[in-house]
Design a protein around this nucleic acid. Structure first.
Length: 575
RNA sequence: CGGGGCGUAGCUCAGUUUGGCUAGAGCGCUUGCUUGGGGUGCAAGAGGCCGGGUGUUCAAGUCACCUCGCUCCGACCA
């Protein structure tokens, strides 16, 4: 390829629409253009990167026994009604109707479609397991698309679905996928971590997320450098911390506390630390059958993990209760509410609460608090669970070593689905005794377009992108300082040919631009290697080879340059 | 879904407050010269339903109403 022909309209100025670094750089590097909110056109450079990521994924899926299929993007409502998700999925499902007013959706994922296929075509235990995957566009009508490709409405996903005879088979498939994913992201050249995750709405009982580590990541993960424990904070477990082990229970006391609304106010007023305050939060829990107001008590310095709360309650949704609702239930304004004397309201306590002996709570009466509150004595502790968000520095739940924290971008997610879909959609097989059995499923996704964005979030500098070799749009760019100079041009053309013959993905900058322009573009686009052919080194019979990643520059003899670069690339790809 | 902001040249933006001649700048693009190792310099050009609609007015990029699109914030700690 020659840059004179390449459709990569680089921008000197910052596009106004871009917010995150990957979005900005992809626009500036001429990789993508926005077509409409949350929908992007991929230009040749982006397409090459996506193709490379997809190729790595394909190779690893195939290696693990996966078979590629292509599934419809337009999916009939009937299948979604059968699984129950037509009603549950909500506004994120892109819905449409045909000319006969029949309902369809654009697939955000393909459990229904694949289960429908397999139940129709697979009937015997001899055909199991099946590992089927597809790499295609998927659709989610995000309430607010943002961060460029990171949260788009149209995006590219690889999804693999496993169908096994039983839980043991699923375990095997799951482990295969875990290993395959590890290989995929290693081969992409990304720094990542696999973490325990909450299975969330997809269902099932175990799951891991693969997080590309980047400061801009939306997800917070905690991990232990000692034993390797790693989890999304939504899931991370916590050891309850003793905070008042030296104190004895004392009498309950009603205290006038005018204007003391927040934990901060409370610590100042009582001269105590947030650890000694018991926060009471009211949630509206939504079940299929109705709503319930619950009170959740937690230490003043902790935060509630709503995912844990939702799982504990077994409800569909939780939401902070409105001020009006709280007042109606307690008679007091938020800030003066507490667990003592609540009538007919379920009280959930975080696991740290029973360890407290003298707490401060609101008295359910404006401008009054109780102190000396003894959980269990002064309010019931019938429902105790781990409900808080783990923070960095807390002891690892496995080994006790302090946990570290970092930000990650979720690029892969693997789930054990179990029989959720097979039972809803009647996907049976006959076992070796002729008995009907439910297939046991797993699903395993990788955000392909998101991985491209995540790679940039992790690898860039002030000048532009720094592609890992394995997913770079081209591995090398050959830049003659002046293409008009006969000698430079001849050397450039020769190296270009040699690299092509060596199987290197090379692009030649044959534009009649000034050197500075060519260097800027090369840095912005982020080619891993640049061979610069200029009069200075050429006098010595040399060219300069610089590495975008390490910023190192080597002078190499013209006749050895192609081989030299090819070796570097080979090493990068196989290290 | 709630609240803000913005739609003017391919891009980034002035101009709108206080209506008034042929609507501007920089970058990019074309042509010529120049330059030739980190976005050269000079000159000449091309390029606009001022998002769309309705209205007010002698007159609308500018005011009013409607509409479409884009974008940011929020939708959690008592």
């Amino acid at each position: 390829m020659r840059t004179s022909q390449l459709l990569a309209p680089t921008l000197r100025e910052e596009p106004a629409e871009a917010e995150v670094i990957s979005h900005r750089l992809m626009l500036r590097a001429g990789m993508i253009r926005k077509t409409t909110s949350g929908v992007y056109t991929y230009l040749p450079l982006a397409q090459r990167v996506l193709f490379k990521i997809a190729t790595i994924i394909r190779e690893e899926m195939n290696r693990a026994g996966g078979q590629e299929v292509a599934l419809p993007i337009i999916q009939p409502a009937e299948l979604w009604q059968e699984s129950g998700r037509w009603a549950v999925y909500g506004d994120e499902l892109f819905r449409l109707q045909d000319r006969h007013d029949r309902d369809f959706c654009l697939g955000p994922t393909h459990e229904e479609i694949i289960t429908d296929l397999v139940r129709g075509e697979v009937h015997s235990y001899k055909q199991l397991p099946q590992l089927l995957y597809q790499i295609q566009n998927k659709y989610r009508d995000e309430r607010r698309p943002r961060f460029g490709l990171m949260r788009a409405r149209e995006f590219i996903m690889k999804d693999l679905y496993s169908f096994d005879r039983d839980a043991a088979g699923l375990e095997t498939s799951y482990r295969k996928m875990y290993e395959a994913y590890t290989r995929v992201f290693q081969r992409c050249g990304l720094k990542f971590r696999a973490v325990e995750a909450d299975p969330g709405a997809i269902g099932g009982n175990a799951s891991h997320e693969f997080m590309v580590l980047a400061g801009s990541g939306e997800a917070v993960i905690v991990y232990c450098n000692e034993c390797g424990y790693a989890a999304n904070v939504e899931k991370a477990e916590a050891r309850p911390e003793l905070s008042q082990e030296d104190l004895e229970p004392c009498d309950l006391e009603l205290v006038s506390t005018p204007g003391v609304r927040t934990v901060e106010d409370g610590t100042a007023f009582f001269g105590i630390t947030p650890k000694e305050i018991i926060k009471t939060l009211f949630y509206e829990a939504e079940y299929e059958t109705g709503r319930e107001l619950v009170a959740v008590v937690i230490r003043g310095d902790r935060s509630i993990n709503e995912v844990k709360l939702l799982n504990r309650l077994g409800c569909l949704r939780v939401e902070m209760a409105s001020e009006a609702r709280i007042k109606e239930a307690t008679g007091a304004n938020p800030g003066f509410v507490g667990p003592i004397g609540l009538q007919g309201i379920r009280i959930l306590a975080d696991a740290e609460i029973p360890l407290m002996v003298q707490g401060v709570v609101g008295a359910n009466q404006d401008n009054y608090h109780y102190r000396g509150v003894n959980p269990g004595r002064d309010f019931p502790l019938d429902d105790v669970a781990d409900l808080r968000i783990v923070e960095a520095g807390e002891p690892c739940p496995k080994c006790g070593h302090p946990l570290a924290e970092s930000y990650g971008i979720e690029v892969g997610h693997i789930f054990k689905l179990g029989t959720k879909y097979s039972s809803a959609m009647n996907a049976y097989y006959l076992d070796d005794k002729g008995q009907k059995q439910l297939m046991v499923m797993g699903c395993y996704g990788i955000g392909v377009s998101r991985t491209m964005a995540a790679a940039i979030e992790q690898n860039y500098d002030a000048n532009g992108i720094k592609w890992p070799v394995a997913i770079a749009p081209f591995q090398v760019i050959v830049v003659p300082v002046s293409y008009q100079d006969d000698q430079q041009r001849q050397v450039a053309e020769m190296l270009y040919e040699q690299l092509l013959n060596l199987g290197v993905e090379v692009i030649l900058d044959d534009r009649l631009e000034r050197a500075g322009v060519k260097f800027k573009d090369a840095d912005l686009i982020g080619y891993p290697y640049r061979i610069t052919i200029g009069p200075k080194a050429l006098k010595e019979g040399q060219v300069e080879i610089s590495c975008r990643f390490t910023d190192q520059c080597s002078h190499v003899k013209v006749e050895e340059a192609a081989e030299w670069v090819a070796n570097q690339i080979h090493q990068q790809l196989h290290s």
